[in-house]
């Protein structure tokens, strides 16, 4: 039932996220379980009918008990602080994943209501279908040609927003072959529910044949065909483009007020930097 989700991870990011989930739940149960058990016990023992139970109507406080009450949650939260600080940095979506191979760069553009994936190094593009080699990191650079979107592939890890005129980034990797669901999770209008795509983790040979298939697709992605593609479409088909106009991703960003050469600057406070 949790096939290809965080609980059945298909990549290192989702696996680490799952571990973090169980660690933090375990820590919190130290506070939460006693509440549930104690409530049940107290409610049963001190019911009005049970005259045998002790009754102290004026007992309204106790230094030691109160100190203990603060101490336990503080202790657990301090422990969680370290967890949060370390894992937030370890699982920063902008952080390149450790691997012997250079990442595959994909530029994702959110449209109404489809996903365009540009492969700048391969100079091809696909719509509603993301193909990448298993075992090789994928760096997804995102922007939007419309409203705010959010790209997520639950089997592989978390999500990040895609916003017009700005670039965000998501680093993922699959360590087993499979076809996973991907979608926009940020409500964006009538076609929202159908804005899904397939994320296919394939072996190197299959990736090469995907690239070859795209190169033979016939249609090239330039400003004109992009404009056609960008018209609102619900449940659009999978498309492939044999080539992509130079710097199209940044042209799309620039059309919403960004400067073509600006890329995310990891040292700034906001990754999603918008330079007017």
């Amino acid at each position: 039932m949790f096939k290809d989700t965080m609980l059945d991870p298909a990549g290192p990011v989702s696996a680490a996220t799952r571990d973090l989930f169980f660690d933090s739940v375990g820590l919190m149960l130290i506070v939460v379980m006693p509440v549930i058990v104690l409530t049940a016990l107290v409610v049963w023992r001190y019911r009005a009918g049970n005259v045998a139970a002790r009754y102290t109507p004026h007992w309204g406080g106790s230094r030691i008990v109160e100190l203990g009450l603060w101490f336990m949650p503080v202790l657990i939260v301090v422990m969680l602080w370290f967890v949060v600080w370390n894992r937030t940095h370890a699982l920063d979506p902008y952080k390149p994943l450790a691997s012997g191979q250079p990442p595959l760069v994909v530029q994702a553009v959110a449209l109404d209501w489809q996903w365009l994936f540009i492969y700048p190094d391969e100079n091809i593009a696909s719509v509603n279908r993301l193909v990448f080699p298993v075992g090789r990191p994928v760096t997804i650079e995102l922007t939007s040609d419309s409203v705010m979107n959010s790209l997520m592939i639950p089997a592989l890890g978390g999500q990040i927003y895609a916003m017009a005129g700005m670039q965000t980034e998501l680093n993922l990797m699959a360590d087993r072959i499979g076809v996973y669901d991907g979608r926009n999770t940020m409500f964006n209008g009538d076609g929202f529910s159908a804005q899904v795509f397939t994320a296919e983790a394939v072996d190197v040979a299959a990736f090469q044949s995907f690239v070859a298939e795209a190169r033979n697709a016939g249609e090239a992605l330039d400003s004109a065909s992009f404009e056609t593609l960008a018209t609102p479409t619900i449940a659009g088909p999978v498309r492939l483009y044999s080539s992509v106009e130079n710097n199209l991703f940044h042209t799309i960003m620039a059309s919403h007020g960004s400067m073509p050469h600006v890329a995310a600057d990891a040292s700034s406070t906001m990754h999603a930097e918008h330079n007017p």
Partner: peptide, 13 residues
């Protein structure tokens, strides 16, 4: 759970 950013990436939205 949601306040831990890496878990929020998964559960947000």
């Amino acid at each position: 759970i949601l306040s831990i950013p890496p878990l929020d990436y998964v559960f947000h939205n």
